Simulated scan of single mutants.
Amino acid sequence: MSILICLDPGHGGTDRGAIGLELMEKDVCLDICYRVERELQNYQGIQVTLTRSYDVDVTIQERVEWANSHKADLFLSIHTITRLKGFTSYVSVIAGSHDRRLQCWLHNQLAGALRSYGICDQGKRNDTETPNGLLYELRHTKMPAVTIAALNLSNPNEHQLAADYLFRSRYAKSIADGLARIYQCSMRGNERTGHVCT
């Protein structure tokens, strides 16, 4: 059985997202999504589609339509964090237990990996706890949907981490490994010992 992950790099084009000393959220998110996609190629049975592959304007509605039309198994939106420092994750306040379990598994995987960098865990949240009070994409996709947000680009220490390509690679690997564990997918070359995907 094959799993399709829809990665959504936050913002893009004229929507720059959060602005740091040198970095823009839209660029950081796209780079991380590319790295996650590459890491997931190491696992059997996982395919990836991206809502944007370069720096272009994509509306929230277009992102949702892309995920729905491709019949993705999971919609994962990547952002940096605002107002706070550290790391958090979101699901819709109306999300069911299955979506919340996915959020919990992925959140715990990433929180553990980021802790070694001194990135604090701000907890699992509902979209009503965002500045705008809801996340359209989490409510209108026809598959489980989670947003993860890490690193405040206006914080000097976290901006420095976001600028570090080695950190980005390790962060992306943590995301990919977490997704592979959720769907019980084995690494390529381990066909005899692991699941292809459940």
Rank of each mutant, 00 (worst) to 15 (best):
V28D: 02
G12C: 06
I32C: 10
L7R: 03
G17E: 04
G45L: 06
Q44D: 06
L40N: 01
T51Y: 07
E22V: 04
L50D: 06
Q41N: 11
D8G: 01
I46E: 05
L50A: 10
I46W: 03
Q41V: 04
C29F: 02
G20C: 12
L7K: 01
Q41W: 06
L4F: 04
C29K: 03
V48A: 12
V48H: 10
C6M: 14
R16W: 11
H11A: 07
G13S: 08
D27V: 03
G20L: 14
R16E: 11
E39D: 08
T51Q: 08
D27W: 03
P9T: 03
R16C: 12
G10R: 00
L50R: 14
H11N: 08
C33D: 11
D31M: 10
V36T: 07
D15L: 08
G12H: 00
T51G: 11
E37F: 05
C6Y: 05
G17D: 01
D31C: 14
L40G: 02
H11G: 06
N42P: 00
I19H: 13
I19S: 12
G10T: 03
G45A: 09
G45F: 08
I5T: 03
G13H: 10
T51H: 08
L40E: 04
Y43P: 00
L21N: 11
L23Q: 08
L7T: 00
I5S: 08
R35Y: 05
Q44M: 09
L30A: 11
L4Y: 02
C29N: 14
D31K: 14
L23W: 00
H11D: 05
E39F: 07
K26A: 04
Y43L: 07
P9W: 04
C33A: 15
G13T: 02
D15T: 13
D27Q: 13
L40Y: 00
E22K: 15
L50P: 02
Y43E: 00
E39H: 11
I46C: 09
P9V: 06
L4C: 13
D15V: 10
L7F: 02
T14R: 15
I5C: 07
T51L: 08
L7E: 00
D15E: 13
E22S: 12
D27S: 11
G20T: 13
I32G: 05
Q47E: 15
I32A: 10
Y43M: 09
